[in-house]
Amino acid sequence: MGFEIGFAIATIPTILSVVGTTLIITALSCAGAAGLGFAFEMIRRSGWTADYVMRFVIDFIRATPVLGWLYFMYFVLPFYGVRLPTTAVGILGLSVYYSGYLAEVFRAGIDAVAKGQQEAARALGLGRVDAVVFVIAPQMLRNIAAPMGNYFVSILKATPYLAAIAVPEMLGSAFDIASDTYRYAEPLTVAGVMFLLLALAVTGGVKQLERKLLKADRR
């Protein structure tokens, strides 16, 4: 049984139809990971004990594989009576896993904002929250745009892991075709090529965005 180009082409529409699912999962996971990562970093900065605990949590998340987290969420949550749709479990798993990395990005970004900025904010009587929102965060965003973009691309590239817990994204739909037709090579290759093109396009878009941000910085 060889590689049939005709059959490969026939699988394209099916796999193409779930590109949207992949992108939505990616977007929600990016938002989740960034939100959770930022919360982790804010908690870590709130005190000595929190610093110690959150460092451990963040290191732990970073040292464990994403597949481990997906299985953990998929099998362990129902055990405690939390029943979510698999897609939600997948988004949750990616969010938790990448929050560890994004917390580090936020840490570096905040550390890069000069210490004097925090002091000036305090001297002007700004509260903690106002100082973060109006002084630290806007400066931090420019520091972290590039590494954050890279992690967003990583999140996109991690979405096929969700096939392991039966989420219908691109790899999952390729497997659906495969199990219906008993032909694995064609749908998987098509999924691979299409995913590569998608990843390259998104990477290009992120780079473009970075360049714009940097340009805006050079006013």
Partner: peptide, 21 residues
């Protein structure tokens, strides 16, 4: 070291605390 906020205009540096605090 001045510690002006580099992402805000001169005016916004001056008004930030007036408006927020």
């Amino acid at each position: 070291s001045f510690n002006l906020f580099p992402h805000l205009t001169v005016l916004a540096n001056c008004t930030l605390s007036l408006r927020r605090v």
